[in-house]
Nucleic acid binder design. Structure first.
Lengths: 206, 206
DNA sequence: AAATTGAGCGAACACTTGTACTCTGAACTG
DNA sequence: CAGTTCAGAGTACAAGTGTTCGCTCAATTT
């Protein structure tokens, strides 16, 4: 029952995924990914590809899922940073930026396919990002006592700003990344202040 | 000196650009654009393409420029709306969203190539967006008396939020677009309030 | 021990791709 | 009017693409 056969299959499956990842770069996106090249890098014949995935699309969706997993790791890591105390905003933004630097290929994939050419891809990415936003909403409601409505507005704005800055960070050198990080932190502080002011304005109206 | 020849050349050049535009859709991006198909739709032989562009890349950059032109139209239109009085934020966001709806193909191109696979493309798009941000900064400094630093933070945040919402609007139906518009307006109000609060905080500190 | 399964291979097929070359004929120039 | 220019067409080629088919042979099951 060792499943030496199933284990081997899983291994080359991982090799295929890894090969696809390796070929994703700033210059070559998912769209220009070729079955034959992926198979070559994974060390199998082109035809054997079909033992693992029906299409390139199926491989692609697997990559997006992989990216979602990574995003969830990021969430966990952020929560740990927050638990340690200190500035929540600063901690979150810096962990996010570090993550972008360490997982460039996968972030690029997510960002590209978010406005890419396959509806399934777009939906898959949107789902992952929404998961991210939802976590933030929960935090704002539970810890900071915002109304759900205001929390949703705020969280959505934050995610838009942070992901957009993350996209810019993909191309940036170290110095530029630092600038982006500080800028994003300052912007989130503005948003936080604005949300706070909005909450007060709503309260005094009652 | 009529230039009946030059006119014809310009005409088929426009036909090529138009053909390329037509082939850009939610399903078919720039990356999967083929010289032969573009030439076919423009009604010329594949080889004649080279009389007008050296590469597909050159055609692509032309499309991006075209998009930049469109963005500048948007700016002008927004300013007219603002001059009419009323809510600046509401006017700007609604004109932006209308523009996205009416120029879907070109916006999709800009959004995709902003994080696309050609460095030249990314730079070209970034340049256009920066132009957009710069205009907003000028407005905030001149009309609202913000410091340049705060205006830049605010403008950049606004552009990130609006363009990100615009990207979502590409796929959305009418109802969803309205929701997005209202949401974006509310978010920009939060940012405005936050910036205002930040300005006050800085002042009292002096 | 015999039978079955299935990952991986190699050959082959029917395309599509970009691009180099040569030629034509209408528009322009002197 | 003769000569030149040049947009566009046609042919051809080499290189790549995804996918089907039948085969092998080790792992697994009966």
């Amino acid at each position: 029952m060792a499943g030496i056969r199933a284990a081997q299959k899983e291994k080359t499956r991982r090799a295929l995924i890894q090969a696809a990842m390796n070929q994703l770069s700033a210059e070559h996106g998912y769209a220009s990914l070729s079955l034959r090249e992926v198979a070559r890098e994974a060390g199998i014949a082109p035809t054997s590809f079909y033992r693992h995935f029906q299409n390139m699309e199926e491989l692609g969706l697997t990559l997006v899922d992989e990216g979602g997993l990574t995003l969830r790791q990021l969430l966990r890591q952020s929560r740990q940073q927050i638990a340690k105390g200190g500035s929540i905003i600063r901690a979150s933004v810096t962990t996010f930026m570090e993550f972008v630097s360490n997982n460039t290929a996968i972030f690029r994939l997510l960002l590209q396919e978010k406005s890419g050419n396959s509806r399934d891809f777009r939906l898959a990415v949107t789902r992952e990002v929404e998961h991210f936003t939802a976590e933030l909403v929960d935090y704002l409601v539970a810890e900071q006592k915002f109304t759900r409505e205001l929390a949703e507005l705020q969280a959505d704005a934050i995610v838009r700003i942070v992901f957009s800055a993350g996209a810019d960070a993909l191309d940036a050198d170290h110095k530029e990344k630092q600038r982006l990080t500080e800028q994003t932190i300052a912007q989130l502080r503005i948003v936080a202040r604005g949300a706070e002011a909005t909450r007060l304005a709503a309260k005094t109206k009652e």
